[in-house]
Design a protein around this nucleic acid. Structure first.
Lengths: 242, 242
DNA sequence: ATTTCTTACTTGTTATAACAAGTTTTAGAT
DNA sequence: ATCTAAAACTTGTTATAACAAGTAAGAAAT
């Protein structure tokens, strides 16, 4: 005998039914869902249950809510960062796709690096400082990511002006800092309050993290940082050859 | 004058304070948070507010709750899939790290492929079928990912037995299907109900998706699929040479 | 016709309440 | 001492209620 089906909560039942309507195209991307009041009518449940059901859909990234306006089916088109065999030159990459990338400097300062960064960049223990830069990445004027980078002091000092206005890797190349290899990890996290404010997303929104270390000649690390981008708008494309 | 600070909700205020306690190490990974009752006492607010505050932390991936037990600070150690210059051979890769990978076949059947897959695999329009395989990936007996793959009929038929028990790429190699290149995209999504049940995570849990197409000689596509893994347990490591 | 203000509608926050459903501890029976 | 059942925890679900805050539509005044 099948064991008695575990009682599924009302809010899951309701969110699954709305889920199907979205998947089946009954509610299309951009459409407004019925208001809470209407959904309460339809299912004859309390507001708290309907709100929970909608929250389930928001958590699945299918719906976004706006105070005073309503709940809307999200439309997701993602932009790919290309991690080709050569290096990432995001700006050109996006320009090819007709997307305008701009930068907004948040901070640029000499700071004591966290211990992990000290190790990775092989900073001298008597003076473990590096330039810390935080940049906001805007695609078509809309914030899409944050870049947090530690740069060796000698490089950061010379290239300060440029670094505040452009992407890091192309600047290094222009200034004859050869980048021999980049070791990177791609992972996902969820937005904390600080990031949710920078990126204008709700708390807990999925984010893609590209944590990288760039090495110049003789395997000398020169830059370490992470690019944190909205998971609903970006992805990474990888091409592997045998 | 600074414009009047936007009123921040109580639940955010509380979750941020607990957030700090976690970040500062006052609550350590694995620790049990105070119970709802105790937190209500501490902040003199209603249960709904405390529950919302904890939900905020869960959404940020910092806390997990278990009915009847309590809320616990999560400990995150992530396992890296290596996307080296050569191809992904996950099993060896993980074995090197002392992690046992096992597979559990969910479905293996000849099916009509979705139109996107038809295009990618260049299936004949009069018979657009391919083998559809769903596998559960278990690391140390615990479900960590789901693999959904479409395989050309001629290959799937011959290798059916093997495919049900092992990873796809090593099998192809053993059977002299040369894989010349793999085009892949890494992105993140949130668990829907089906995936949340397979992977034993809450609805909306962050997931990493590795969507790939493998090409053999003459750029002929033979396999297309996606590996969906728990974002809290896995990441991808990429090494780029110039 | 245009602007302004009010009103009605939307989602967001918070409180109180009761019960359900797991887990752990305690008290009791053997 | 060991097993068992009850009690006392825990988080999960759902209802009702009131007000806050943001948006849109309509009425009133210019």
């Amino acid at each position: 005998m099948a064991k008695t089906q575990k009682q599924i909560p009302l809010h899951i039942d309701i969110s699954e039914q709305i889920y199907r309507r979205i998947i089946d195209g009954y509610y299309l991307p951009g459409d407004k869902l019925p208001s809470e009041r209407e959904l309460i009518e339809e299912w004859k449940v309390s507001r708290i249950t309907i709100r929970r059901a909608i929250a389930n859909l928001v958590q699945q990234g299918l719906v976004s809510t706006y105070q005073g306006k309503g709940a809307f089916v999200t439309q997701k088109r993602k932009v790919a960062y290309t991690l080709s065999n050569s290096l990432t030159f995001l700006q050109n990459d996006l320009a090819d796709k007709g997307i305008e990338l701009s930068l907004q400097n948040i901070t640029f300062e000499l700071a004591i690096a966290p211990t992990e960064v000290q190790k990775i960049l092989q900073l001298p223990s008597n003076n473990p400082t590096a330039y810390l830069q935080k940049k906001l990445l805007l695609t078509d004027k809309v914030p899409g990511g944050v870049d947090i980078t530690y740069i060796l002091p000698e490089i950061g000092q010379k290239l300060a002006t440029e670094l505040k206005q452009n992407m890091t890797f192309p600047i290094l190349k222009r200034n004859h800092w050869n980048i021999e290899r980049v070791a990177a990890i791609i992972e996902c996290t969820n937005a904390n309050l600080e990031l949710s404010e920078y990126l204008d997303v709700p708390l807990g929104h999925p984010l893609l993290v590209y944590r990288h270390t760039a090495y110049t000649t003789n395997d000398r690390p020169i830059v370490h940082g992470e690019t944190i981008s909205r998971g609903d708008r970006f992805c990474y494309s990888v091409n592997q050859l045998s």
